[in-house]
């Protein structure tokens, strides 16, 4: 995986009168409610996270859990109260205003829940906005903007104003704008939450298509657990400003570490999430035809029911990595814990 692109160490973000002074005197182990009783709001509580290059980390939590605050700390839209955040090896809290602007102009893109489009600019001018800000000439930025507009499927709407577009189309503009500068890091703050369920599904597919093409490092925020499971390489579940668990979807579903996470996973159809590769126990050899490590339990349902083997070999890219216990997999399928 290489060195992490974003590395957060013991990050705190406290809102209130004198957050820095308060954090200094803060006793370890004080809960969110304790802090609130002191007159402060803990947006982010002692979060340590790494985001690897090319990885899609989904931060999941209910409203007010601090997920939006955390991602704004990553891009330094919020100044953090304590801890440190490194982006590409630079501590972003130490950057001068000029360097920060440079970083945002060249490496970061962000998509917002209610789109954040500039109402007085056309689609083209909105998408070209970051390019204009970094001083590119009209011709270059127009060319690049048209490329990204094409990429998100809005060709022909360049001269429309945001208010003339539907919600889904507006978010496509937001996505195009965030991609215009070819960022390394892509932040998406609940990009599809304001959309109708049908459009949301369509946009998720679109997003997966784009990501398969572009392979960016992504921090994606959502309050929708299904969305998180669908998109994530890893999920960080947040509550009251702290990360409860950060792991792959399979692990979160199979082994929730806290009651809070367990509650979330209760209603989830685990068979759709858990992959054969995760169930495979190394060093155990099954016999017969192996199954693909990337297949979910649900996809293997017919085989699991019909097959008579106890141990089924699992292969990743043609290489057998172990074998799964058929009975265990069937339990997942039948929702028996």
């Amino acid at each position: 995986m290489g060195s992490p692109v974003i590395s957060a160490r013991n990050v705190w973000k406290i809102f209130g009168k004198d957050p820095v002074g308060y954090l200094k005197t803060l006793q370890p182990g004080r809960s969110f409610e304790d802090i609130r009783a002191d007159g402060y709001i803990a947006g982010v509580r002692d979060v340590s996270l790494d985001v690897a290059r090319g990885e899609m980390l989904v931060i999941m939590g209910l409203s007010g859990s601090g997920k939006s605050t955390l991602v704004r700390c990553f891009s330094r839209l919020h100044e953090i109260t304590g801890g440190s955040i490194e982006v590409d090896g630079q501590i972003i809290g130490d950057l001068s205003e000029k360097d920060l602007i440079e970083l945002r102009r060249n490496k970061m893109g962000m998509v917002f829940q209610s789109f954040g489009l500039l109402p007085h600019r056309t689609v083209l001018d909105n998408v070209a906005f970051p390019l204009e800000m970094r001083g590119q000439d009209r011709h270059t930025r127009r060319k690049r903007a048209l490329e990204v507009i094409e990429l998100v499927g809005l060709a022909g709407r360049e001269d429309y104003f945001p208010r003339e577009l539907s919600g889904g189309q507006q978010q496509r503009v937001g996505i195009a704008r965030s991609l215009a500068i070819e960022p390394d890091i892509w932040f998406l703050d609940e990009p599809f939450s304001a959309l109708d369920p049908l459009i949301r599904r369509e946009m998720q597919d679109e997003f997966l298509r784009l990501q398969a093409m572009l392979g960016k490092t992504i921090v994606f925020i959502t309050h929708d657990f299904d969305e998180a499971l669908r998109l994530a390489d890893r999920i960080a579940i947040m509550k009251d400003g702290a990360v409860e668990q950060c792991d792959t979807p399979d692990q979160i579903v199979m082994n929730p570490t806290t009651d809070y996470v367990a509650k979330f996973t209760e209603e989830i159809d685990k068979a759709r999430v858990v992959h054969a590769g995760v169930l495979a126990r190394a060093g155990v050899a099954g016999e017969g035809q192996p199954v693909e490590a990337g297949a979910t339990v649900q996809q293997l349902a017919r085989l699991l029911v019909n097959d008579s083997r106890d141990l089924i070999p699992v292969a990743d890219k043609g290489q057998v990595i172990g074998a799964l216990d058929r009975q265990g997999a069937l339990d997942i399928l039948l929702k028996a814990s």
């Binding site: 602007i101 440079e102 945002r104 962000m110 954040g116 800000m133 970094r134 704008r177």
Partner: peptide, 12 residues
């Protein structure tokens, strides 16, 4: 969000 979009676009 419009303000943040501006900042993330690298506005001075």
């Amino acid at each position: 969000e419009v303000v943040e979009a501006g900042k993330m676009s690298g506005c001075t």
